[in-house]
Design a binder for these strands. Structure first.
Lengths: 203, 203
DNA sequence: GTCTATATAGGGATAGAC
DNA sequence: GTCTATCCCTATATAGAC
């Protein structure tokens, strides 16, 4: 077993990641994956049995890279305000490196909810329980305003993720080049923690 | 409605709207549109020349229903705080009636940006200039904290739209039934204006 | 206008040589 | 393991009867 044997399989996965994120499941052609990987179409079927199998690998990989990372940050032992900072900083940083992931996941999940369920069932705990508990504790301690902790959670996710999903529309609406949009997002990474904390803090 | 009437064109458009939003462009089969409309597949080509033509009609219709409505609310003459209220109330209300629109638009725009451009070019002004100016005035008057108005705009959109796009994931993560999720969104309609205003107001 | 039947192409998958 | 050639089904689109 030489290292060359794994080269193709890896090339296929890399290529598939690019093409599936660019075109979605139904928009993807096996030929395009093969071209992107620099190999033959038949080889795709040699390594993976079907288009569906390749997609499964990419989709689960994407979920595994993104959902648990949120949970990890949110369920860490950091103090609340520090954690809000870490969340935006790390998560937006991660998204900057993988800007197409949100649309990809949301679209495929909307069109095929079963995939999500099987992932959740075996892979990991979906609810950031410690974080929701932490918010409750902050409220009880009188440090933040009384409110449903779930709304805070959803707001954090919305503020961080939406701009990536809506990028083309926002970019057009705000009349920004690619580089300017990236700068806008980087500014946002610094802007959001204070935006959120200012709302939550009890006066 | 019977296929003998000449509601056919309308029936096709209604059916296409449902199917394209459910499956996306590539996931949609002409047969499924025909079934949904209760007519024959060949009739689709009689009224519209191709799948692409039907899609174009649906996609432009969706854009026309949703983007200008945001702009209208934001560029109205309402005072700032009242407007924030109106925005969440009206727009989330609109989305509750059309929950699949955000994902549909964002996905198709990401995969085919040219469609968006031609729409913007001829149809309407994309930037809510009056709203951005209004924020600037509020800042100058010392009523809200100094900040980039564009971040406020993007935050409003994020908070209102994201939960619809991410619905299946949030629903699973928060362990909510369809009805409970809907209630959660309705609560959010009341929750968000104060969440935002509390952050913006100058202390 | 609406149908049935059919042409045509495209794309996922397999066979078999090397 | 990797290629070329090919199978075969599916989906868009058209032809033609009524």
């Amino acid at each position: 077993m030489g290292p060359t044997e794994h080269h193709s399989e890896e090339a296929i996965l890399n290529a598939a990641q690019i093409v599936f994120l660019r075109r979605g499941f139904y928009g993807t052609r096996m030929q395009e994956i093969a071209d992107e990987a620099g190999i033959n179409k038949a080889l795709l079927h040699y390594y993976f049995r079907s288009k569906d199998k390749i997609f499964e690998a990419i989709f689960l990989g994407s979920l595994k890279n993104f959902l648990p990372q949120i949970l990890e940050i949110l369920d860490s032992d950091e103090p609340f305000e520090k954690k809000i900072n870490t969340f935006f900083s790390n998560y937006i940083g991660l998204l900057l490196k993988n800007p197409h992931i949100p649309n990809f996941i949301m679209h495929e999940v909307a069109h095929n909810p079963e995939r999500l369920q099987s992932f959740f069932k075996k892979s990991f705990e979906a609810i950031p329980k410690k974080f929701l508990k932490q918010i409750k504790d902050e409220i009880d301690a009188g440090r933040i305003e009384k409110q449903d902790p779930r709304h805070i959670l959803v707001s954090l996710l919305s503020l961080a993720i939406f701009p990536f999903a809506a990028k083309p529309i926002l970019q057009f609406g705000l009349n920004l080049t690619d580089e300017e949009f990236k700068q806008f997002i980087i500014e946002r990474k610094k802007y959001l923690p204070e935006f959120v904390m200012k709302s939550l803090r009890k006066k």
